[in-house]
């Protein structure tokens, strides 16, 4: 017992060899455990760190303040419900089906994916993966086909999130349309698999409002509604900055100005793509290709600086492609 061991492995070996008794082995293990040199990270602390990871990813997104607050709210709510359960108090069932309203490119899918990770770390979902579907994935070609296809998608999403993009299109065709059948199947699946599935319906603000009004049963089943506003000009510029940094490029000062006026002219023209992060990404990716063409055509020496800078000409050329 007086002997001290540096690792638990050593203790197991000594025990197996018969050099120490089980009692001695336990003593040694306990001593080793009390020693702060071998920190045993608790499992719950791990979870805490991971769910904070998911949250941090969310915090990094530009704008979306309301969404971020709501997600924090949900996280706190889930944790408190868990603590209440442990304390033997009454708990509310966790109904976390959601509706995401907003224009394309406002971050709906990105947030859904982060939520999946967050819920997994919080222990709400077992897998936390995201299955993205649209009308065509759910609606079948003949009577009875729709329920089958919808169920297939639901099965894929069990343990994670089923994200239905442009969900309003399920109610598009009127009474005889198979979309109705898909909705019914989804509602039934929500009840049947309420512990394993989170459903997110996403789409344009107005269309989604109309969709929910036309299906009165839906609003009560989706208690969480997140609105994704269009990005304003400043936010779009921040997004652009972040995107080029991630790709290890930089804007030349005039390029930045050019992009700013470009986005501004789009927003004053009420372009439906204004306030759209996807548009910004497309412009940047195209100007990166344009830069490559310019560098190859030119005769200048290609140093690190030259490889990084996106110029005004690159942005303009990219815009001409877009039309």
């Amino acid at each position: 017992m007086a002997k001290s061991f540096s690792s638990s492995r050593e203790i197991y070996q000594e025990l197996a060899k018969g050099n120490i008794s089980t009692v001695e082995a336990l003593h040694a293990l306990r001593k080793l455990q009390l020693n702060p040199m071998t920190p045993a990270a608790g499992d719950s602390r791990d979870n805490q760190v991971k769910s904070d990871d998911a949250l941090e990813e969310l915090t990094k997104l530009i704008g979306l303040e309301k969404v971020k607050n709501l997600v924090k709210e949900i996280q706190a709510y889930v944790k408190v419900q868990e603590l209440r359960r442990q304390a033997g108090l009454k708990t509310e069932p966790l109904v976390l089906h959601m509706i995401f309203k907003g224009n394309p490119g406002t971050g709906k899918t990105t947030v859904a994916r982060i939520l999946g990770n967050l819920f997994k770390e919080l222990g709400v979902l077992s897998k936390g993966h995201l299955v993205e579907v649209e009308r065509a994935d759910l609606v079948g070609e003949y009577i009875g086909h729709t329920a089958q296809r919808t169920r297939e998608q639901i099965k894929k999403a069990l343990g994670g999130i089923l994200f239905i993009d442009e969900a309003y299109s399920l109610a598009r065709g009127g009474e005889k349309d198979f979309g109705k059948e898909a909705i019914d199947t989804l509602v039934k699946a929500m009840e049947d698999n309420k512990n394993e599935l989170i459903l997110i319906l996403a789409g344009y603000q107005h269309e989604m409002d109309r969709f929910i009004r036309s299906n009165p049963g839906l609003s009560s089943r989706f208690p969480i509604v997140l609105e994704f506003p269009d990005y304003n000009l400043d936010e779009l510029m921040q997004i652009a900055q972040l995107m080029v940094e991630e790709r290890e490029y930089v804007f030349s000062p005039s390029a930045k100005e050019c992009l700013y006026y470009l986005l501004k002219s789009l927003s004053t023209n009420y372009d439906e793509n204004s306030g759209n992060a996807r548009l910004v990404r497309n412009i940047i990716e195209r100007s990166i290709r344009r830069q490559a063409v310019r560098l190859m055509a030119g005769k200048a020496k290609l140093d690190t600086e030259a490889l990084k800078v996106l110029t005004e000409a690159d942005i303009k050329a990219a815009m001409e492609d877009t039309g």
Partner: peptide, 22 residues
């Protein structure tokens, strides 16, 4: 068990048990 068991197989089994506790 408290002491040292005569059978090596059982001693190994006990070592694995302690390992599993960790």
């Amino acid at each position: 068990i408290d002491g040292i068991h005569p059978s090596p197989a059982i001693r190994r089994a006990m070592a694995r048990t302690l390992e599993a506790i960790a």
